[in-house]
């Protein structure tokens, strides 16, 4: 299964499979964790359908377990998910010829993973993206996430320690793969520059963990990494 230049539904479904596989593992783990922290299956299902925020949902569950204030939970979620602003900003220009409704809908269901898939896809399609491809990937990922978290909730206390089966690594593996594929196929930025930026971000993440809570750190480091990249790109021209 390789990524193709086609932007139809079939290729979208095929190319979203690794994401879906990762979501199944993580969503099961989420459902189980949430159930163990006292949430009902309905609450788990609604959170995955309405909040739909992957890692932030784990944060929410841990904060609910502590009976944290609603305002402070919402604030944490905003911080964790503020990176979505960046990702949407990157994807949106590719859909600007589509209608406003389609733009809003595509944004509504965009995730880290469908964003990363889109970026990889661009390297095969001459930098084109369309609504149908992104929407298919988004909806496939969304439905799997929602229903699998509910199933995880139902399995609830039957399984403990969901981490030990290795599924928690599925999405990390996907990001490793996509990072590698992005680096070798993005011709807009020289490989050496990309490599230096990756090292820079990795070092900043390490150092930053001492000072900044993880929630906000990822966004700060990403912004600094992009700034550093621009300086390098122009400095070496």
């Amino acid at each position: 299964m390789r990524v193709t230049g086609d932007l139809d539904m079939r290729s979208a479904l095929k190319e979203t499979l690794p994401t879906v596989f990762g979501y199944i593992g993580i969503a099961l783990a989420f459902g189980i964790t949430a159930r163990a922290n006292g949430l009902s299956v309905l609450e788990i299902f609604l959170m995955s359908l309405i909040t739909y925020a992957g890692s932030a949902e784990f944060v929410i569950v841990s904060l609910i377990a502590l009976h944290a204030g609603i305002g402070s939970i919402v604030m944490s979620v905003f911080l964790v998910n503020a990176r979505m602003i960046l990702m949407s900003t990157v994807v949106a220009p590719y859909l600007s010829k589509e209608s406003m409704a389609k733009n809003i809908w595509a944004g509504t269901l965009l995730t880290d993973e469908t964003f990363a898939l889109s970026m990889n896809k661009l390297n095969f399609t001459d930098h084109q993206l369309n609504f149908r491809w992104l929407d298919t990937a988004n909806i496939f990922a969304y439905l799997v996430w929602g229903f699998t978290s509910a199933i995880g909730g139902m399995l609830g206390n039957l399984i403990n320690n969901p981490e030990k089966y290795g599924f928690s690594f599925a999405l990390v593996a996907m990001f490793i793969g996509l990072l590698y594929l992005q680096m070798i196929s993005d011709r807009a930025i020289k490989l050496t520059i990309q490599f230096i930026v990756v090292i820079f971000v990795a070092v900043l993440m390490f150092l930053g963990m001492k000072w900044l809570p993880q929630n906000g750190l990822l966004l700060v480091v990403t912004l600094l990494g992009c700034g550093f990249g621009v300086v390098l790109k122009h400095g070496t021209k």
Partner: peptide, 11 residues
């Protein structure tokens, strides 16, 4: 923004 993908994935 061209650097967002590699930065976010690395982070």
């Amino acid at each position: 923004l061209g650097f967002v993908p590699i930065c976010i994935m690395t982070a």
